[in-house]
Design a protein around this nucleic acid. Sequence first.
DNA 1: AATTTCGTCAACCGCCGTGAG
DNA 2: CCTCACGGCGGTTGACGAAAT
Length: 281
Amino acid sequence: MGRPPCCDKEGVKKGPWTPEEDIILVSYVQDHGPGNWRAVPAKTGLMRCSKSCRLRWTNYLRPGIRRGNFSDREEKLIVHLQALLGNRWAAIASYLPERTDNDIKNYWNTHLKKKLERATCTAAPPPPKKEFAYKGQWERRLQTDINLARRALREALTVDGTMSTSPAAYRNPADYALSAHNISRMLDGWALGKPAGAGVSNPSAADSASASSSELTDCSSSSASNCAAPALWSSLLGCQSNAAAADEEMPLSALESWLLLDDSTDQSAAAREGLLRNYPF
DNA sequence: AATTTCGTCAACCGCCGTGAG
DNA sequence: CCTCACGGCGGTTGACGAAAT
């Protein structure tokens, strides 16, 4: 009954991979393709468990992975997505196809989280620290109220109690797909509103990211005009501008504004009502 | 120069959903 | 229908190098 055991625990090697092991693994994947990890140790002679082989491939050896410094835009994208999705690194990574979820998680834990905390602590009197000299205002403003933003998001996503208040609790894949679909549309709108010359490192990457997560979104082929993002932005901002006008705006600034919504203001409440009314989650 | 502290990141651990048998 | 390995995910650890003392 059940499947045969994956690999014996005895004799399984742990720790850093050697170049020789990498070569063996890459050769195997080139010949057989990724997958069926259970067979890898047996067929290659690697003294690693299947899980370790899969991890090594997906996080390090897989082609198309970009290592090294994250660009400002990647940084911002991660911050936005983290605010929207929480610590769903795999979902976040689907929007940065050149980065692994592990990389993004590490970068968040070692860089961005600390940066957010510092900015939050020092938000009141603007610190003359050179550390922030090269960063825009958006980060401090966003970080100052990041928790509030996340709470507001959860509230905004709650429709008649039919959807969980926690994105992490989308047990129904369709619910999550809807959510991710909408986020993808937001980001599409954002990317389309970027200044000329700026953008994701590889403009087609954003599309391929959406496409690669086809289970999550089908918006990869959407143009700006048939995307619902403009309506979302205008509803988020509580303005009754038409879609064409909203289309002209920089969605990032709109997202910032929304993330900075203050629970106590009428405007924020109206903005969220607008979201619920106009945006069909 | 030696030691300690800090930052980074690859890898591991444990849990969960899925599906083969 | 049940069991349990697989594959995937997020959290955490620990080795290593850099910076500070």
